[in-house]
Write a protein that binds this DNA or RNA. Structure first.
Lengths: 353, 353
DNA sequence: GTAAAATGCCCTGTCAGGCCA
DNA sequence: ATGGCCTGACAGGGCATTTTA
């Protein structure tokens, strides 16, 4: 056993990974740590050959800067925190990966936090947790009614959220889908098909998005001069849509605007069970355009929202806030698109049936 | 404009929140920094009154320990990294939030990373990125065929994944659903209904899960003494299930085992378009049991997997690895459950039809 | 007085920036 | 123009010291 013996076996030498430090690289390259630092951080004033030599040492030793040490001295962590509700609903998750990728591109890492309910207490706890982790900004996504955030809890940290906050803080931008626009387009579409009695199956009204969609429906009805039909509240699940649809009477209603696709699926199933054909006897419009919406037994007419765009925009705004760049507006609403498929039909079809 | 002018407007005074440090608390409470440290970390040997006084100062000054400094000195970050494929497939996302909650409970934060494809290169990059962030372990989830991880890239870091790795590292545990068991149960169920010619719509075979399910189906067929029907490969999407089903001939096949629910939905839609009734003319079994599976027009018979349990187990194993506690096994396979609904029926029904 | 508990000093960990050679 | 040295960013560990029983 001497220095030149190569250890055999997978775990041999599995001591602490023995990460190389700046000083190790310096020693290896025969320069000062400062010079290595300059090379690593791409600063000027290093001769090309020296730079080359240092680079080589960096690779050889597998050096990577210690994030903690760097954060300590630069006072920057390049971490952003994401607070979201812990449910595998399509909406909240759809934008998640886009969020991460946008953050990565902008040079930030994403730390995830979940809350069961976006109550003031839970949010405050999540924020404290993220603050302790040193995040430089927070995105609050999915979920959430109007947020109640004690400004003190935020300690001035930038926030981007899909819902507005009660105490408007200066470092806050709202990025959301224009829910109201989507809902109104749905109503308009049904109106154009001749529907006059249009019900609504809402999401849980503790959610800002659910309220927005309901209000958009309400406003669409009013704009069309129609008396709003009944509203039934669900919880976003197919199951709740199924239950909600059972309480809707065919005699009173010819169409339903449903606040998301999964509830719409449940509703269509329920109508079928009751002997009501979709779209022959009843038109249904969903919201989200989940990937499988087009491939249902009755392909779903729905309102598409662009989660990817929303995620990218959120990160962009947050980074601007963090880096103190000027922002244009504090509320951004992204457009929706109505996707017409087979779950809606003209009332004519109904009267003939 | 001089120093004393207070800036007016939304961004005024958005200077660093001026977080209190340990020494500030110490000064405020009239003790040494070490004592404050003890109080903050709940260590013994501090008189109750002193502890109380320090706590008060902590609250008054809004002190929270600087994560970077703490990480630097303790050589612990309490961060774990998650590498997952960037797609909003149900599987990968379903366990995500459970993962975060389990990590939180164990005292770890979760940093998210996505790869487009689980290639060796992309994985290596993701790992370097996480390593640079100081994570203490990695969970590789969703996605992924057999992983090719250069052990050197890992630098001995603990890994838990849903897929096995090619170069088995000692610090590695596989936690996965017992895909094969699920597939065999599906075949068995179809067999018991009298089906003999059973096709398979597979997931993308670059995915380990897809291969496992196909192999399970294959083995189930063999065990039952049946000749395997055709296999068509999809990409997990409803769209691909729809396309795949079109290539299946009713004359050759009376049932299909589909590798996930969304493809199964697309397949059912396709059969319907071709005038093949489900389950009258064709039985379909899915996999996952997505929440809306029960509320399809044809409620889906499917194989349920417990993503929550998988997530919790993954975190548990990883933490054990990180904290150098003994682990029992290096491969853990969680059971599945066959959920029988309406998309499968006896072939008798078919023959009478 | 002694042992034990409580408290504090000093130094370390890693990297970047300022100053100086 | 380059490169070296020293310090600062913050919290925790080891041990020495003071207090208490």
């Amino acid at each position: 056993m001497n220095d030149s013996v190569v250890e055999i076996g997978s775990r041999a030498g599995a001591l602490p990974p023995a990460t190389a430090r700046l000083s190790d690289v310096a020693a290896h390259a025969g320069v000062s740590t400062k010079t290595v630092s300059r090379v690593v951080n791409n600063e000027p004033n290093v001769r090309p050959q020296v730079r080359e030599r240092v680079m080589l040492s960096v690779v050889t030793l597998g050096y990577r800067p210690n994030a903690a040490a760097r954060a300590l001295v630069t006072q920057r962590t390049h971490q952003i925190g994401l607070i979201t509700t812990a449910s595998s609903l399509y909406g909240p998750t759809a934008g998640l990966f886009s969020l991460e990728q946008a953050a990565w591109k902008a040079g930030y890492a994403l730390t995830l936090t979940t809350v069961r309910e976006p109550s003031e207490g839970e949010l405050a706890e999540a924020i404290r947790y993220l603050l302790a982790r040193g995040v430089e900004g927070v995105i609050i996504s999915g979920a959430t009614g109007v947020l109640h955030l004690a400004p003190s809890a935020l300690a001035g940290m930038p926030v981007v959220s899909t819902s507005p906050v009660s105490d408007a803080a200066p470092n806050h931008v709202v990025v959301d889908t224009d829910q109201s626009m989507g809902a109104r387009a749905a109503v308009r579409h049904l109106y154009d098909l001749g529907h006059r009695r249009i019900a609504h199956i809402a999401g849980p009204l503790s959610w800002h998005a659910a309220v927005q969609r309901r209000d958009g429906w309400l406003r669409g009805m009013k704009d069309a001069g129609l008396e709003p039909g009944p509203v039934v509240e669900g919880d976003w699940s197919a199951k709740s849509g199924h239950e909600a649809a059972f309480s809707l009477d065919r005699a009173e209603v010819t169409a339903v605007f449903v606040a998301n696709d999964h509830m719409a699926m449940g509703a269509i199933r329920a109508f079928t069970e009751k002997g009501i054909q979709v779209p022959g006897d009843m038109s249904v419009v969903g919201f989200d355009d989940v990937p499988e919406a087009a491939y249902q037994m009755v392909p779903l007419t729905t309102v598409r929202q662009d989660f990817v765009a929303g995620a990218e925009r959120s990160v962009r705004e947050l980074v601007q806030l963090i880096e103190n760049q000027p922002i244009e507006t504090t509320s951004i609403y992204l457009p929706t698109e109505l996707i017409v498929r087979d779950s809606t039909a003209s009332v004519i079809a109904l009267d003939t049936a």
